[in-house]
Design a protein around this nucleic acid. Structure first.
Lengths: 325, 325
DNA sequence: TCTAATTTGTGCGTATGTATG
DNA sequence: GCATACATACGCACAAATTAG
């Protein structure tokens, strides 16, 4: 009883066999839920379990009021993964490539982007629901996220979760914003000590506050002064400040202001920017960046998808020291 | 097979269109239920769903045993627009905001991104089909695009179409790549004449070849030499060349190489970069950029959605002259 | 003029997958 | 695991009006 196969699995295998043998071909209609029920002596909901599994693996598609159709012959596909990311950057591509290389050939993955727009986020998940076995969600700080995720029919894995209350509910791999920021400052401590104040510039409610905790921790140890700004608008660049910026827009704002004020980067003021991009390598002789290792994140993610273990994993982060520090 | 518009809704929209276009006028008899059934290949009862909806909206009246008559022209269609863009950039946001401001209460709009991935493009359109009245598609150079677009159930408008064969089929607003490039060079001719060769760096098949035609035209008039490179990989930066780059990656590559070769930007070599971003304002003392006016594009697009006229509109383009030219 | 077949809209029953509890 | 409501789609029987012969 315990270890016996679930009864609905019979139907899954039955359909798999029919597809493999060529009896069911792409476009064919398969028996209706009621028909299966009579044939196998199972309740409607049990049949739905089987249909849902076949659907999520992409083998069949449902047409309401009509029936189910065979949509693929790829019986070997056991995992269909949806990657729902916030935005596309060169380094997200690294994550994607590392993930695909690691995940193996009995799995496929699609990737979509919500660009921090809640409506898009909801729309994409609603349309995708039921079509994948696993949903990997990089969400940002959306309110009431828990409800949306609970509606998903399949495994859910979080990337860069910002909400501690979700940690216990889903496996995840992400940045430990406090620890990463603290460790980065420690790595560059020799240079960081040149400055009197560390100013974090990031929009309230959009970026993780934990970063500031890391800065406070470092400042206490090294006798510096921590400061939090939601924007540089209306603020001049201060001599002796080390600015840590979350967005490229604020970074550019600082650099322009400093130039106008004739302040020398790396001496009069310093800059650390989150997230590496090619341009930062040469901007102002090099901007020091603080980035998580997206390739590693991709590999870890693939592991989580395959193992389905309930883990919260922190991704490693590195400081690229350049002229601006 | 899946995700097409609900079948009876097709008939509702069909009748709406006929009334709007003036083909059906008040008092006219419309085709019978049987006639619709034959035409659209669905059952009589499904047609009644459509007729019931039209009746409840007061557009038609039934006369038993006789038929249906048009009873009103007050068609109130709530426009729902899907914007399917290639990628999210700060300047696409300008387009979106300008569009939303101009379209006002006449429509609601969703925005999605395919990031130049054909599979994502197809998936998103397939899922969205039937849910919108208008589809605005910024596609890039996808092969066989015509087939995909033909499947869409609703109005289609193209943004930045690269395929001349589609011009006649759909209204569009986009860049005239040849003319824009030529005019930009003309605007900066005083500076451009400093160089002997104009080198366009852009990936074959991904970016519009028309840009090179514009460069050739300019070079002929001013006695310069045009050159086309698909990448800077393996090529040093040449003295006396003006480089025009499509992607920021190539731009960074040029700047790094030139720095290593100790060439002075704006003197030994020049750079014009497509698409303005905040960072280019300060990179190397300012990179000259060539950008289309995305806000204007948004306004024009809103006009096209409202008017549904069959037009091909060229969007204005401007050259921002900076240190790199 | 009559009759029977056809066409019309109407109404009800059934089947489908979906969603929610 | 079960129950229920829902939207969509198909089929059949019916009465009234029209049409063919």
């Amino acid at each position: 009883m315990k270890n016996r196969e679930k009864r609905y699995k019979q139907i899954v295998h039955f359909v798999e066999e029919k597809i493999l043998s060529g009896e069911y071909r792409v476009g064919d209609k398969i028996p209706s839920v009621n028909a299966w029920g009579i044939r196998f002596g199972l309740s409607r909901s049990s049949i739905f379990l089987a249909m849902d599994e076949l659907k999520s693996r992409g083998l069949i598609e449902a047409e309401p009021s009509i029936g189910y159709y065979v949509s693929s012959c790829e019986v070997k596909i056991q995992e269909k993964v949806l990657l729902l990311f916030n935005e596309f950057t060169a380094f997200k591509e690294d994550l994607y490539n590392a993930f695909m290389a690691e995940i193996g050939d009995d799995a496929t993955a699609d990737i979509l982007f919500h660009n921090y727009n809640r409506t898009i986020f909801e729309t994409l998940l609603r349309n995708a629901n039921g079509k994948y076995t696993t949903y990997v969600v990089m969400s940002g700080k959306f309110e009431g996220l828990q409800r949306t995720l609970a509606n998903l029919n399949g495994h859910v894995i979080l990337l860069d979760h910002f909400r501690p209350e979700l940690k216990a509910l889903y496996p995840s791999v992400g940045q430990d914003f406090e620890e990463d920021t603290y460790q980065a400052l420690l790595t560059g401590a020799e240079q960081v000590k040149k400055y009197k104040t560390i100013t974090l510039v990031q929009k309230e409610g959009f970026e993780p506050e934990e970063r500031f905790s890391g800065i406070i921790r470092f400042c206490k140890e090294f006798g510096l002064c921590p400061q939090l700004l939601s924007t540089m608008k209306g603020h001049p660049v201060e001599k002796g400040h080390l600015y840590i910026t979350a967005t490229d827009r604020e970074l550019v704002d600082i650099l322009k202001k400093a130039d106008a004020q004739k302040l020398a980067i790396g001496h009069d003021y310093g800059v650390i920017s989150y997230n590496e991009t090619p341009m930062k390598e040469i901007l102002c002789g090099g901007i020091t960046t603080l980035s998580t290792d997206f390739k590693q994140m991709g590999r870890t993610l693939a592991m989580l998808v395959k193992n389905k273990t309930m883990q919260t994993i922190s991704n490693p982060c590195t400081l690229l020291q350049r002229n601006s520090l």
